[in-house]
């Protein structure tokens, strides 16, 4: 959704909140200035022309706030209320169960594998797409976006079709005693699939905006390819990169549908945290289930806080609004 950037460039120049530096190809806008401008627009515009009568304003705010409270805040509160419903002792005991510990370990392991691989290949993909011209670029971008729009269940299914007992490579794998499905490699593959777009997608708009001038300058001054990447490109994209890694990690740890299809639910072995939440919930072990769920909810909240901070940093460049 590149509407934002396009609008920003096409709209007639409103108050000069953005300083455009053509040489660097950067749009710099300070968060503070932006906020001040927003406020100025809300206040300074002739007051009766651009707003609604008081009662209507009140109704709209009330509707928005109560809808968000019922549908978003309450479910979150329920998670913590249930987790602590039998006291903090029961909560900690539930988290210390061997099953819970092995699920936490597996989740961390899978997230580490998929985030690091997607980090490397996300940067390479974004680099290839933004700094070079080649045929089939649009197709490549569509391919990268695909996991966003495919049902997680289908993401898991495709790996079952490849590696399952009836799958294309199933018999060969069995003959050679290699376990992919119902084991860590399968879980990691499915997770890599669903988290593939995050890093590349956060970097593409940023790198597009920055162009290739700085890299060309570095190369013409005698820097090698690697030097150029680590000294010029990487510092330019570091906030965007962190942003992508953050979202990628959150999804990797929380993925349920795709992982559930390929994991086989072997207790203590192939259960990630979201899968354990499901199993315990279906066994009516609500405190234990919500205790694990509360860890995942904390992860989500921390992710959101860090994301807000990173977005402010990115405002110095451009904010990826895609997610």
């Amino acid at each position: 959704m590149s509407t934002k950037s396009n609008l920003a460039t096409l709209a007639p120049p409103a108050p000069p909140l953005q300083v455009y530096i053509p040489a660097a190809g950067l749009v710099i806008s300070q968060p503070a200035a932006r906020e001040a401008d927003e406020r100025a627009r809300a206040v300074a515009s002739p007051k009766d022309l651009r707003t609604e009568p008081g009662p209507i304003r009140f109704i709209i705010i009330a509707l928005a706030v109560s809808f968000l409270t019922v549908f978003v805040v309450l479910p979150l509160v329920v998670v913590f209320a249930q987790a602590f419903s039998k006291g903090i002792g029961a909560y900690l005991a539930a988290l210390a169960e061997p099953e819970a510990l092995s699920a936490i370990k597996l989740t961390l392991l899978v997230a580490a594998i998929s985030v690091s691989l997607n980090l490397v290949f996300g940067v390479i993909a974004a680099w290839a797409i933004t700094k070079f011209d080649f045929r089939g670029k649009t197709f490549l971008i569509t391919l990268i976006d695909l996991p966003f729009s495919v049902s997680p269940v289908i993401s898991g299914l495709v790996f079952v079709l490849l590696f399952g007992a009836q799958g294309y490579w199933g018999t060969w794998l069995q003959a050679n005693n290699i376990h992919v499905l119902f084991a860590v490699p399968g879980i990691a593959l499915a997770t890599i699939f669903v988290t593939f777009p995050f890093v590349a997608r956060s970097l593409i708009p940023l790198m597009q905006e920055q162009g290739t001038q700085e890299e060309e300058a570095a190369i013409s001054l005698g820097a090698s390819g690697l030097q150029t990447f680590f000294r010029v490109t990487l510092p330019n994209i570091k906030w965007g990169l962190l942003y992508g890694v953050l979202l990628c990690n959150a999804r990797a740890m929380g993925e349920f549908g795709a992982v559930s299809v390929v994991s086989g639910h072997i207790r203590g072995e192939t259960n990630t945290m979201p899968l354990l939440v499901e199993i315990l919930y279906n066994e009516y072990q609500f405190v234990a289930s919500f205790a694990i769920a509360s860890l995942l909810a904390m992860l989500a909240l921390i992710t959101l806080v860090v994301k807000t901070v990173l977005e402010q940093r990115l405002d110095e460049g451009q904010t990826p609004r895609d997610h």
């Binding site: 968000l68 479910p75 959101l304 994301k307």
Partner: peptide, 17 residues
């Protein structure tokens, strides 16, 4: 900020909640 929670909350957690 709250608007983003459905994005960030793992689906299984949202489901049980």
């Amino acid at each position: 900020a709250i608007v983003d929670i459905p994005f960030a909350l793992p689906t299984a957690v949202a489901g049980v909640a």
